[in-house]
Design a protein around this nucleic acid. Structure first.
Length: 802
RNA sequence: GCGGGUGUGGCGGAACUGGCAGACGCGCUAGACUUAGGAUCUAGUUCUUAGGAGUGCAGGUUCAAUUCCUGUCACCCGCACCA
């Protein structure tokens, strides 16, 4: 046989054409084989094309998918495009090219690039969130939510980006800055669409228990949902018929509450304005607070400001003491009830405020020194100055006081969540139109299901107005319609959905991508769900994963999907940083283009290197030099072909079978870097042999195949195989062949390695000791010294203590 | 401030329930083959006054610690006046 010349370009093109033309990765509905659904987060098809991060994100499950096929599974490994969103729209505004055209071009580029990397996606099931046939169902889900009161409209303070002119969710304005452009976000009162995700808060929390994932992923979601348990307590407002309700996690400190604080936006101010003597001052304070952005409110957190409401006094319900009420912006209208009972002795913020405004500080939990600082310990402290709960520890005090509050009907146990309802509209063009019609007679009416989709009209101008109205609001033909209920003239909603909408259910559409009757056939959903393994970015854990779980739970409730939770297992890849160790970004100029690597070294090399670079779940800097090592490995592998014979060779059996075992396990445990290291070790060992048994070489090709499918397929074919490697069987390791007849044991003195001895496996302890203590080196080092103890770890080491 | 994570050679990184620290790769050094080598192959490569020392730092438990415990420092990520 003539030695193969490893021409990666030729080989890779040949096999890619072969695989994709023959639909080698097609998922079969209702096949008899066990199913496996491997899902990767679908890309946003940007104009820059794919970067190394994409390749890394897909490589993990690409390995798993190829392995599963060889293990006999019917694998669904789909891909699609999350194509609505701002970058495309901004590009369209800049160039005047319609977003539809931009999107189609980018999708073509991406598809091509995905194929050049040799990914084994089922390209027959590609979905595109901007396709009418797709977003019809996104709108349909919205309508179902609307019908059940889970989509509603409300006036509220929202995060608004003055630069993008767009309403942002809390998730998109983390740190008080716009997710997209970093502009400081301002607060604006606006009519906004919400999805009532808070209805699912508890279920979203509970569902996490069944999700197989890293602890930090669970913890991040838990923090985001932000459950806290405490109590609601009513404080009567003197000389009025109303009371202020507060949420507190520390009802045990109720006796120490010496004043109250309400958010500047609290509605009681309007209701009781006749009684308030310093209304102007309070309005002024409110105005100032509004001018402060969320960001500034946090930044200025150190310096607490506030205004005492002159004219309103609250009554502490447990001791009937009259206490003052303040307005201060350190209390948020959006969390809890927008009002707090301040316990300066045991809350650092209240302490600061009380010190500044000279308010009474009462110690109700002993153990600290409240003349110096607030004492916040909630486990060890003992209650004092607290009537019926004196002498109790905090946890018991909480239980007793809540019982007391409930008996007296002045409060009750309560749960509060940090998570807020999901602000669900954008004043943008390139998104799914919200399928609602505003009728002057009937109010808000949803577009009937049979009239969906509400198609995005073709427009000339994509920019929102300066007031932040959607560009759709200027199109008369779009806005003006008739009411589906009364038939009278009515107007369409002109806002569109946020980018998170289409991605909240795309994994369902893969299961039945061309269904025109339903979002997906129920039996097919039953066959394929749940997603067995979902991989994506860490940055999507708190948003996309929670959002899509919410949608899925909703669809389960209305009988559209067969499982309550969508995902069985979730992993997240670490970032690839620039060669300089910084996050890759255009402005830093440290972006690596994967297609340069494919051109020079080939896709197999790129795939291998991107997984070898470091722990998959950890961030790692890119290093161009390291790529060569991956290529050398493939060169060595190809050269092994010359050594293949029909003659059995027992020399390398233990390492071959150990490698099969370890590589299989490493893949399942997301340890691709060590899996590749072990493959390299094996190839290095085989290089030393003068002949390799054909079947052994085939086993090697099989375990390398998921990582480097093109070259292994070529070598496989050259061995005379007619069928593709997708249909090859993943090799089984043989425990018996892993056993080595002799093993090396370490002999150490006081824990320091002094000698090594080679012994038959499972040599009895006594024999090991006598051999270990009789070597020249050990004799020399122990002569004249008393051996106090000898520890033997079977087949590993002997430690002599002197 | 709260929550989570990470600190190991010149570099990226290995090390299962405590058991040979530095697998594998890059880089580097020497040699071989070459007109040539930025190709390939072979050998070596933690430091070192050669006795030892060594996994951010200081202690502790143990026959034995990168691994367990206590304290501490640095960096990264997430949340953040969350009541």
């Amino acid at each position: 046989m003539i030695t193969m010349i490893y021409n990666h370009k030729e080989i890779e093109q040949k096999w890619q054409k072969h695989w994709y033309d023959n639909e080698r990765f097609k998922a079969i509905d209702f096949s008899d084989k066990p199913k496996y659904y491997a899902l990767v987060e679908f890309p946003y098809p940007s104009g820059q094309g794919m970067h190394v991060g994409h390749i890394r994100a897909y490589s993990s499950l690409e390995i798993v998918a190829r392995k599963r096929r060889m293990e006999g599974y019917n694998v669904l490994f789909p891909i699609g495009f999350d194509a609505f969103g701002l970058p495309t729209e901004n590009y369209a505004i800049k160039t005047g090219i319609h977003p539809r055209v931009v999107t189609d071009t980018n999708i073509k580029v991406f598809t091509n690039q995905l194929k050049q990397a040799g990914f084994s996606f089922d390209f027959d099931r590609v979905v595109d969130t901007t396709d009418e046939e797709y977003y019809k169902w996104t709108q349909w889900i919205f309508v179902q939510m609307f019908k059940r009161g889970l989509a509603y409209r409300d006036k509220t303070y929202i995060n608004f980006c003055p630069s993008c002119k767009v309403v942002l969710s809390n998730e998109e304005s983390q740190g008080g800055k716009c997710d997209r452009c970093d502009t400081v976000v301002v607060q604006k009162e606006k009519d906004v669409w919400f999805l009532k995700i808070t209805d699912h808060a508890e279920r979203l929390l509970q569902g996490l228990k069944e999700l197989d994932t890293l602890p930090r992923i669970t913890i991040e979601q838990e923090n985001w949902i932000g459950k806290s348990v405490g109590a609601h307590v009513d404080f009567k407002v003197k000389d009025t018929d109303e009371s202020l309700m507060v949420f507190t996690t520390r009802p045990d400190t109720l006796f120490g509450s010496t004043f109250m604080v309400i958010a500047p936006e609290h509605s009681i101010i309007e209701r009781q304005k006749d009684k308030i003597n310093n209304l102007d001052e309070i309005y002024q304070y409110k105005e100032n607070a509004k001018l402060k952005t969320e960001f500034e409110r946090v930044e200025l957190a150190k310096d607490k400001t506030g205004v005492k409401i002159d004219g309103l006094v609250a009554i502490n319900p447990v001791n009937n003491k009259e206490i003052p009420i303040f307005v201060a912006d350190y209390v948020m209208i959006g969390y809890g009830t927008g009002a707090i009972m301040a316990v300066p002795g045991h809350d650092t913020r209240d302490y600061e405020f009380a010190t500044k405004y000279n308010l009474e500080i009462i110690e109700v939990i002993s153990g600290g020194d409240i003349t110096k600082e607030a004492y916040t310990d909630s486990y060890e402290g003992i209650l004092v100055n607290s009537g019926l709960i004196n002498g109790l520890k905090v946890p018991e005090a909480k239980i007793k006081i809540i019982k007391f509050l409930e008996e007296k009907n002045i409060g009750k146990e309560a749960v509060n969540f940090k998570m807020k309802d999901w602000a669900f509209n954008r004043q943008r063009y390139w998104g799914e139109p919200i399928p609602i019609i505003h009728c002057p007679k009937c109010g808000m009416v949803h577009v009937p299901e049979e009239d969906l989709p509400v198609v995005l009209p073709v427009v000339e101008k994509f920019e929102p107005s300066d007031e932040g109205e959607s560009p759709l609001s200027t199109i008369e033909e779009f806005i003006n319609t008739t009411c589906p209920q009364c038939g009278g003239p009515a107007k369409r909603e002109t806002d569109t959905m946020p980018q998170w909408a289409g991605s909240s259910w795309y994994f369902l559409r893969y299961i039945d991508p061309r269904n025109t009757e339903k979002l997906a056939d129920f039996d097919k959903l039953k066959y394929w769900l749940q997603v067995d393994w979902y991989n994506g970015g860490m940055e999507h854990v708190t948003r996309h994963v929670i959002y899509s779980r919410f949608w899925h739970q909703f669809l389960y409730d209305i009988g559209v999907v067969p499982t309550e939770e969508p995902y069985k297992r979730r992993t997240a890849q670490g970032l690839i940083l620039g060669p300089d160790g910084d996050k890759m970004s255009k402005s830093k100029g440290n972006i690596v283009n994967p297609y340069d690597i494919i051109g020079v070294y080939g896709a197999d090399t790129l795939r291998l290197y991107i997984l070898f670079i470091g722990d998959y779940e950890q961030s790692t800097p890119w290093n161009e030099n390291g790529v060569k090592g991956a290529r050398r490995f493939l060169d060595k592998l190809a050269r092994l072909e010359d050594k293949v014979t029909d003659e059995i060779n027992d020399n390398y059996q233990p390492i071959l079978h150990k490698t099969i075992k370890m590589v299989s396990a490493d893949i399942e445990n997301v340890k691709f870097n060590t899996a590749i290291a072990k493959l390299m070790t094996l190839v290095n060992e085989l290089t030393k042999e003068n002949h390799i048994f054909k079947e052994d070489f085939e086993m090697l090709l099989k375990i390398v195949n998921p990582f480097a499918p093109h070259i292994t397929e070529e070598l496989w074919q050259r061995l005379g195989h007619k069928d593709d490697m997708v249909n090859a069987e993943w090799p089984q390791y043989n425990e018996n062949k892993m056993i080595e007849s002799t093993i090396e044991m370490v002999v150490s003195i006081n824990g320091k390695v002094r000698d090594k001895i080679r012994l038959p496996l499972d040599t009895p302890k006594e024999e090991v000791i006598s051999i270990a203590t009789s070597t020249d080196r050990i004799k020399e080092l122990t002569s004249g010294k008393e051996i106090r103890k000898i520890i033997v770890v079977p087949n590993k080491l002997v430690n002599i203590v002197i």
